[in-house]
Simulated assay, not measured.
Amino acid sequence: MEGKEEDVKLGANKFSERQPLGTSAQTKDYKETPPAPLFEPGELQSWSFWRAGIAEFMATFLFLYITILTVMGVVKSPSKCATVGIQGIAWAFGGMIFALVYCTAGISGGHINPAVTFGLFLARKLSLTRAIFYIVMQCLGAICGAGVVKGFQKSQYEVLGGGANVVNPGYTKGDGLGAEIVGTFVLVYTVFSATDAKRNARDSHVPILAPLPIGFAVFLVHLATIPITGTGINPARSLGAAIIYNRDHAWDDHWIFWVGPFIGAALAALYHQIVIRAIPFKSRS
């Protein structure tokens, strides 16, 4: 019997009981991540830096390719996708963000959006060097993605508007700007909440997969604001579509799709820092 008891003890130590999903952080202390430096020239010599930029380029390329093709299929008349409607477009944008953030989060952080990069930069989550590099690669990826869509169906692309963001008839420029500010605030606020280590450690009893709430935020914002601006909330997406479509009216309101998202991202970063981060950390261990 003594030998069997020893075997049981050995087995209990070697094969410990698995913890339920989302509870592992309860036994870990929270450590504040130090702010990223403003300039970090040493990054330029690191392969991980360039690899992250390539990941942002490819993710934004695929994002524009899938979403703009979906828009073209829905607005085409007559179209097999006509019944998909706004919901289908919203699902395409939200679903692609979910998939691409999941794929690239471990490489670049899965920004896929200059507004997200800007908000995280303001929160000192990444250096200015990396932020600028990400935004450049995101814009290049968006241009290439929209360009491939136009290559598939050039005549239809021109007729159907190329998925370019504009303030729709019946709405003012102020309406469009406000929609972009609030929509981007929802997105970037969700990004901060879903990826905040302090919150995840404090509320570790709530299992969470970060790409999922981010994708749902994009989906819901599109449902709300497609009728107003076609939903930008991503300056790279708006720039890529506008450059490839290249019609005068695509540029008339283009400033809205940069100013609005950047203001929304800044407000989300500020709100997160002064409200969410101010909550005292209390370990549940």
Score class of each variant (00 low, 15 high):
residue 264 G to V: 08
residue 227 P to K: 14
residue 221 V to S: 09
residue 255 W to D: 02
residue 249 H to G: 02
residue 239 L to S: 07
residue 195 T to N: 11
residue 226 I to A: 00
residue 210 A to P: 05
residue 221 V to C: 08
residue 264 G to M: 04
residue 205 H to G: 05
residue 241 A to C: 06
residue 209 L to K: 05
residue 233 I to K: 04
residue 250 A to F: 13
residue 223 L to F: 12
residue 217 A to D: 03
residue 201 A to S: 13
residue 200 N to K: 11
residue 260 G to R: 11
residue 227 P to M: 13
residue 240 G to A: 06
residue 197 A to R: 13
residue 263 I to K: 05
residue 199 R to Q: 11
residue 238 S to I: 15
residue 211 P to Q: 13
residue 235 P to H: 13
residue 220 L to M: 08
residue 230 G to A: 04
residue 230 G to E: 07
residue 257 F to L: 09
residue 258 W to K: 03
residue 216 F to S: 01
residue 210 A to M: 14
residue 215 G to V: 05
residue 220 L to C: 00
residue 246 N to I: 09
residue 218 V to A: 09
residue 209 L to Y: 04
residue 214 I to K: 00
residue 195 T to I: 08
residue 215 G to R: 01
residue 204 S to M: 02
residue 235 P to Q: 14
residue 226 I to Q: 00
residue 203 D to A: 10
residue 214 I to A: 00
residue 244 I to M: 06
residue 262 F to W: 12
residue 257 F to Y: 15
residue 210 A to I: 02
residue 229 T to G: 00
residue 212 L to M: 10
residue 233 I to Q: 07
residue 242 A to I: 15
residue 201 A to N: 12
residue 224 A to D: 01
residue 197 A to S: 08
residue 265 A to Q: 09
residue 206 V to R: 04
residue 241 A to Y: 15
residue 214 I to L: 03
residue 256 I to K: 00
residue 203 D to T: 04
residue 205 H to W: 10
residue 245 Y to H: 15
residue 208 I to K: 05
residue 253 D to G: 04
residue 236 A to T: 14
residue 220 L to D: 02
residue 215 G to L: 04
residue 252 D to M: 09
residue 252 D to L: 11
residue 261 P to T: 03
residue 217 A to E: 06
residue 245 Y to T: 12
residue 237 R to V: 13
residue 198 K to N: 04
residue 235 P to V: 15
residue 211 P to G: 07
residue 207 P to Q: 06
residue 201 A to Y: 13
residue 239 L to G: 03
residue 230 G to S: 07
residue 200 N to M: 11
residue 259 V to K: 10
residue 201 A to H: 15
residue 259 V to C: 06
residue 232 G to H: 08
residue 229 T to Y: 13
residue 236 A to G: 09
residue 205 H to Q: 08
residue 195 T to D: 06
residue 242 A to M: 10
residue 213 P to D: 12
residue 212 L to H: 03
residue 252 D to P: 01
residue 251 W to F: 09
residue 220 L to I: 10
residue 212 L to K: 11
residue 213 P to R: 15
residue 235 P to G: 12
residue 234 N to E: 02
residue 262 F to D: 00
residue 226 I to F: 05
residue 220 L to S: 06
residue 195 T to V: 11
residue 230 G to K: 14
residue 240 G to Y: 09
residue 261 P to D: 03
residue 201 A to M: 04
residue 204 S to P: 01
residue 239 L to T: 12
residue 208 I to P: 01
residue 265 A to W: 14
residue 221 V to T: 12
residue 264 G to L: 03
residue 261 P to I: 03
residue 217 A to N: 08
residue 227 P to A: 13
residue 212 L to G: 02
residue 264 G to R: 10
residue 244 I to P: 02
residue 196 D to N: 11
residue 255 W to A: 08
residue 226 I to H: 04
residue 211 P to N: 07
residue 252 D to C: 07
residue 229 T to V: 12
residue 198 K to G: 02
residue 239 L to C: 11
residue 263 I to F: 06
residue 222 H to Y: 09
residue 209 L to H: 08
residue 255 W to L: 06
residue 216 F to T: 06
residue 200 N to H: 13
residue 200 N to Y: 14
residue 213 P to S: 14
